[in-house]
């Protein structure tokens, strides 16, 4: 008996090993290495600078750096813009495409296309649209008599321009998840509401939305994590500029690590932002879930 148990354990171990190894090589080792790096002075381009242990110096520098907090704020601004619009549009479109109308199945598939495009390509597509002078967007705006907007070349518009591109790409994600959730809702409560005479808005507000809430929270959670990491689109469209208008956290970290070559500072910034985002997002979503529970009581 104990013989078989031991053998079973060994077999279990053999099956687990590859997963554990892959996890270690791809996740744990880089994390630990980055943590180690964050306590060091490490300039990749300047080997003559001693790569020594500097304690919390990198962390202190970040936490007293205006640029870091600017990047953090810009990231949250962008998140707020994209997430809110994606939520409203995504749910709206989902409500539309789940109607039993002709062509909706096709529309639903077509709407998923932006999501399947690589962010760099999305960036390039929008670069063509935004391109000063030659961009299509300004051409169309011009047709309705509005002046050209310096989309990606003004500090006022650039972040909005990035947000629009991101919204275009990721609204389908919310749409898809919401549509799936909508279709899994049982139809009877809607018939009951129809008979009771509840208005469409009331039905949406009090019947549909509360039932979608858990799904929407999960979708937003995933989007929030993604939005915090946004890089490709910004790199293609503005590279953080003009000025520092679109300098989000990932670009700040990139600049520290690969322009100033301060790998230690970059690593420390990664950790600080990781902690901040984890705490804030957890707090935010916990409170959302709690409000849902209390609302139900």
């Amino acid at each position: 008996m104990s013989h078989t148990a031991g053998r079973n354990q060994r077999i279990a171990l053999i099956f687990l090993l590859p997963a554990v190894l892959i996890l270690f090589v791809t996740t744990i080792y880089p994390m630990v290495y980055a943590l180690w790096l964050s306590f060091r002075n490490y300039d990749l381009s300047k080997p003559f600078i001693p790569r020594i242990f500097v304690g919390l110096a990198n962390y202190l520098e970040i936490l007293t750096s205006q640029a870091f907090f600017h990047a953090l704020l810009t990231t949250f601004k962008l998140m707020a813009m994209t997430l809110s619009v994606q939520l409203v549009l995504g749910v709206g479109i989902a409500l539309l495409v789940t109607q039993k109308l002709p062509g909706m199945a096709v529309a639903r598939t077509l709407l998923l296309i932006p999501m399947m495009i690589s962010p760099v390509v999305v960036g390039l597509v929008w670069l063509f649209l935004y391109f000063p002078e030659l961009g299509y967007l300004n051409y169309f705006i011009g047709l309705v008599g509005l002046g050209p907007v310096p989309w990606i070349t003004s500090t006022r518009w650039a972040l909005t321009a990035i947000a629009i591109a991101d919204i275009w790409q990721w609204t389908p994600f919310i749409m898809m998840g919401t549509a799936a959730a909508l279709q899994s809702l049982s139809p009877e409560p809607y018939e009951a509401a129809r008979i009771d005479g509840n208005s469409r808005w009331d039905v949406f507000r009090y019947v549909t939305l509360p039932q979608l809430k858990p799904v929407l929270i999960s979708l937003l959670f995933l989007r929030a994590i993604d939005a915090f990491k946004i890089y490709d689109i910004i790199y293609v469209l503005t590279k953080g500029g003009p000025g520092d208008a679109t300098e989000v956290m990932s670009l700040y970290i990139y600049r520290q690590s690969f322009t100033f070559w301060r790998m230690g500072v970059g690593a420390a910034a990664s950790f600080v932002s990781l902690i901040i985002i984890t705490v804030l997002i957890t707090f935010f979503f916990k409170s959302m879930q709690r409000s849902q529970v209390t609302q139900a009581r």
Binding site: P132, E133, P148, P150, I152, T153, S154, T155, G241, P242, G243
Partner: peptide, 12 residues
């Protein structure tokens, strides 16, 4: 300068 001067990289 062109109105999108802040986007004027060398090639542009």
């Amino acid at each position: 300068n062109p109105p999108d001067y802040l986007g004027l990289m060398w090639d542009i």
